[in-house]
């Protein structure tokens, strides 16, 4: 597996971001580095409070008013998105960058037909209305909506949940974006539909050749779909690398524990399941050391006093740990 690092579509470097809250400054993202190559599918994994949604909002320019970017940059196709005006950002969204959300109803207007909406989003195109409609039908067929010619004049509520999500994917990919940001698009779907949606996404992605940032908390989906995986914890990316490599030999203790307590990855049935224990640190006053130190079974004085640098270790490209080469943690229930 070779990384096309020469010309990534999206590069987030050194991104540090805070929220102004009554209790002070919530340091939501700290020195986040992320890169997505052309046509690459990158899975961004983290539990609640990991900052993955904040990172997504930062990339899409959808940050709430209380958020302040302190330093760092988000470069997309050569321009820094942090410096763009709202107007310039709108010009990119839906054209060069598209989004699919967890709930497809957020992307679909309930009082307009699917066809009307799929024609409307082609407003940048110079095609005639008839051609736009033909393109919409073709796109619906590609996401395997049965009988697209008649379905196109139906309203969103006349579609099942799985079909709605496929319509949302079709709409997101119509403009042939360079980057698709998918925020938990399969979380609300049943397992069989989830697999079908993942297969569809992979297929369309390889046809269109766009890069995908896939945000999820479901490790299995990342394993199934993504070329690379980035693991976030409490506002930092703690490990990053090729999916197969990271799953086989995770180097960061958090990654190891996270994989260790995923019931899907425990081969032998066990009544008592392992858990990580402890809680997320207070991000209004993060301690000087490693962000995971308070929950890490291996933490020593080095970990609680000094912030670890990013290391290349094992087959992982980035491990933010003082001891990236330590033997894998034994997980016990």
């Amino acid at each position: 597996m070779s990384l096309d690092a020469s010309d990534p579509v999206l590069t987030v470097s050194g991104l540090t971001l805070s929220y102004d809250i009554p209790a002070g400054e919530l340091k939501a993202l700290r020195d986040v580095n992320l890169s997505i190559g052309k046509g690459e599918i990158v899975g961004l994994v983290g539990e609640s409070g990991s900052g993955k949604s904040t990172l997504m909002q930062a990339i899409l320019g959808l940050l709430p008013g209380a958020a302040q970017i302190r330093s760092g940059s988000i470069r997309f196709e050569g321009q820094d998105l942090t410096g763009l005006s709202a107007r310039q950002m709108r010009g990119l969204l839906g054209d060069r960058i598209s989004v699919v959300f967890q709930d497809p109803m957020t992307a679909l207007n309930p009082v307009l037909t699917i066809g009307r909406q799929m024609i409307d989003i082609q407003h940048r195109s110079k095609l005639s209305r008839r051609e736009k409609r033909a393109r919409a039908i073709e796109m619906l067929a590609r996401v395997r909506i049965p009988d697209p010619e008649s379905r196109i004049d139906r309203y969103p509520h006349e579609f099942s949940g799985g079909m709605r999500q496929r319509v949302a994917i079709a709409m997101a990919l119509m403009a042939k974006p360079a980057l698709l940001v998918a925020d938990e698009p399969t979380t609300a779907l049943d397992a069989t539909l989830e697999i079908a949606t993942i297969d569809l996404l992979r297929e369309l992605q390889s046809e269109i050749g766009c890069a995908v940032l896939f945000i999820t908390h479901h490790l299995g989906v990342v394993a199934e779909l993504c070329d690379r995986i980035d693991i976030m914890y409490a506002g930092e990316i703690v490990e990053s690398g090729a999916t197969g490599a990271v799953f086989q030999d995770p180097r960061h203790p958090y990654t190891q524990l996270l994989f260790g307590c995923d019931p899907a990855q425990i081969a032998e049935p066990m009544r008592h399941l392992p858990s990580i224990g402890g809680n997320l640190p207070d991000l209004t006053a993060p301690l000087p050391g490693c962000i995971f130190a308070s929950r890490c079974p291996r933490a020593d004085e080095t970990c609680t006093t000094g912030h670890p640098a990013d290391h290349k270790a094992g087959q992982s490209d980035l491990v933010r740990c003082h001891y990236p080469l330590a033997p894998r943690l034994e997980i016990s229930a």
């Binding site: 858990s275 990580i276 224990g277 402890g278 809680n279 997320l280 207070d282």
Partner: peptide, 8 residues
């Protein structure tokens, strides 16, 4: 087993 004693 860790009981959830959080900063809240």
């Amino acid at each position: 087993m860790s009981s959830a004693v959080d900063p809240a």
